[in-house]
Design a protein around this nucleic acid. Sequence first.
DNA 1: CTGAAAGCGCTAACAC
DNA 2: GTGTTAGCGCTTTCAG
Lengths: 341, 341
Amino acid sequence: MAASRRPTLADVAREVGVSAKTVSRVLNEDGPVSAQTREQVLTAVARLGFQPNLMARNIRVGGPDTTIGLVVPDLGNPFFGAVAGGIEATVHDRGLTLLMGSSGEDPGRERDLTSKFLARRVSILMVVPSVGADHSHLKPHRAAGLPVVFIDRPAVGLSADSVVSSNRAGAHDGVAHLITHGHRRIGFIGDLPVKLYTRRERLAGYRSALEEAGLPYDRSLVTSAHDQQGAAAATAQLLGLEDPPTALFAGNNMVALGMVAELSRAKRKDVAFVAFDDVALAEALEPALTVVAQDPEEIGRTAAATALSRLDGDRSRARTVTVPTRLIVRGSGERPAPAVP
Amino acid sequence: MAASRRPTLADVAREVGVSAKTVSRVLNEDGPVSAQTREQVLTAVARLGFQPNLMARNIRVGGPDTTIGLVVPDLGNPFFGAVAGGIEATVHDRGLTLLMGSSGEDPGRERDLTSKFLARRVSILMVVPSVGADHSHLKPHRAAGLPVVFIDRPAVGLSADSVVSSNRAGAHDGVAHLITHGHRRIGFIGDLPVKLYTRRERLAGYRSALEEAGLPYDRSLVTSAHDQQGAAAATAQLLGLEDPPTALFAGNNMVALGMVAELSRAKRKDVAFVAFDDVALAEALEPALTVVAQDPEEIGRTAAATALSRLDGDRSRARTVTVPTRLIVRGSGERPAPAVP
DNA sequence: CTGAAAGCGCTAACAC
DNA sequence: GTGTTAGCGCTTTCAG
C-alpha cells in the first residue's frame, strides 16, 4: 500500500483530455468554459479526489496567505481561547484561518513563532507580547503593509494597533466597591512579573481608588503570585500581618482561585474580596464572588475588526482600543469592614 | 509609503553577487560554502530583512506542509484549549504548527475546515467530530498516508486512530462513589444531543454502576441539558419529582455549573453530587466538588504522539487510545443518603 | 471557448 | 566552492 501521490491539476487535465488551464478555469470560475467540458472536468475532479494545492496557488498569485498568525502565552488559558474564538468568528467570512502558537511568555519563543508566521506570509499577525520581547524586527513587515495587532498588552518598540481591557478603570472600580463597604486596609495580590503591563495598570487602578478616597498607599499590603499555590501563600501572608487588611483584591483569575481557596481553607468568613477577571462557579461560592469581568471574546472581535480594516486600506495612525470591563457584584465584596476601635 | 515587495532569494543573491542557489545553501546549511560568502550572504539577508517564503519551499520540496490541522467544536472551551496545548507541546520540537478552526458542532463547517486544511497539505489532521458528521471524504487522504486522529469521540465511516477519555469507567466510578454513601436514587443529567458519544458512554457507566449494586434503572431520573441554564432547570425538575433522587451526577462541566448553581440557589444542602470533568474553584465550594477529572492535556499529547508515530511509518492498524479519568474526592459526594423509612 | 508558454520563489540534480 | 538548468503545482498572459 504505497502512499500514492496526490493528484494535480495536470492529472485531472490529462484525464479529461484538456489543458491544465481549462481545469483551473473551471475550479476558479474564471473565464468562459463550455458546459460540456465543465461537466467532464468536475466529474474527473470528483473521481480523482483532486484538491487544488493552496500553497502552489498562493505562490503564483503572490498575495499573502489566507491565514492569521496568533501568538498567545498559553493555549490552555481559557482567556486566550475566548480571544481566539472572537477572532475566528469575525474573520471566518473572509475565509481566513487561524495559525496558533504559544510562547510560554518566553520572548525567544515568541520571536521564533512570529518569524515562522511571517515566513508563511500570514495576512495578519496578532501577538500577546511577552514581557521583555522586542518587536522591532516586525518593522519592515509593517512598512510593507502587514497588519499587526497586539492583544492584551501594548507593543514595545513598534507603532502598531493594540486592544486591551480597561485594566486601570476596572481595578479602580473593584477597589472602590470595597471602599464603599467601609474597608480602609485593602490587600492587593497582583500577577508576576511585576513589570507585566496588566499588573502595572491594575495596580495603578488600585492606587487611584485609594487616593480618591483619601486612603494611604501601604506597600506592605501589595504582593504578588504567579500561580494558584503562590496566591494562597500570599493571601495567608497578608492576613498574617500585624495590621492585616480587611479586604483583598485579586489581580487576575489565577490569583483569585488561590485566594478563594485559602480563605475557604482558613475559614475566614470575615474578609471581603473582589477579583479581576471572571471565573466559572463564581456565583456558586459562598459568598458569591464579585468580579471585574473582562470580555475576551470582544477583545478578539475588536482585534480582528481592526486588522481587517487595515487590510482594507485604512492607513490612519496606530490606535489602542480599550475594551471595557464590568463590575459584577455578587456579594463577596460586601462583607462589612469591622468597626475601627 | 508604497507597500514594497518583499525581498526574495534572487534579491539577496543579486545584492551579494552570487547565485540564488548559494544563498539557499547558506540558509539551509546545505552543501559547502566559503566562510567568506557565507558572511556576505548573512549580512545581506539581515540588511534586506529577507525571510524565505515557506510556501515556495514546501511546494518545491513536495512534502506536506509543517502544520497540523485541528478542528474543535469551540475554541473558547477550555477543555479543547488544553488539548491544543498538549498537542503543541508534543509537536513543537518537530517544527509543526497548529492550524485551528472551530466547527460549532456543525458537520458542514467541520467539512469545510477539513477540506481547507487538506488543501493546505497539512502533515496531520486532528478532528473532534461533530454529531452527524461523515468522514468518508477523508478516505483517499488516509490511503495516501495522511495521519488522521479523532479526539474525544471516535470516527464515523472511516478507520482512523482516536483518543478518548475513559468515559464509561469514569462515570461508573463517580456513580459508585455515590452508591457507596448510601444513595439508591441517583439522578443523571447528561449533555445534548443524546446521540453524543460522550453522553452515551457516560450514561452507560452510570447504568453499569447501578446494575453492579443491584439498583434499578429508572428512566425518570435521567435527563439532559446543553447549557448552564438548562442544567439548572433540569436539576430543579429532578428534585421536584414525587420520589426525587437523593444524589445527582452531572454529565459534563457545563452541566455541573448549572447544577451547583441551582443547588446553591435552592439551598439544598442535603443532596450529594458528583460531576464529570473538573472545574476551577471546585475545592472552594461548600462542600468542595467531587469530580471525575479528565486530562485534556494528556489527550492532546497522546493524539500528537500517535500521529507522529504514523508520520514515522507506523503502519499498524488503527487504534483507539483511552486516557484514564480520575475520581477526585472532595466532599460533595459524601453527603449521606437519608435513612429509608 | 481553449491552449501554449512563461514564471511565482524556491530547491534537486547535475555540472564545472 | 559555486553556478546552471529544470521543475514543484499553479495562474497569468497572450494567441489562437
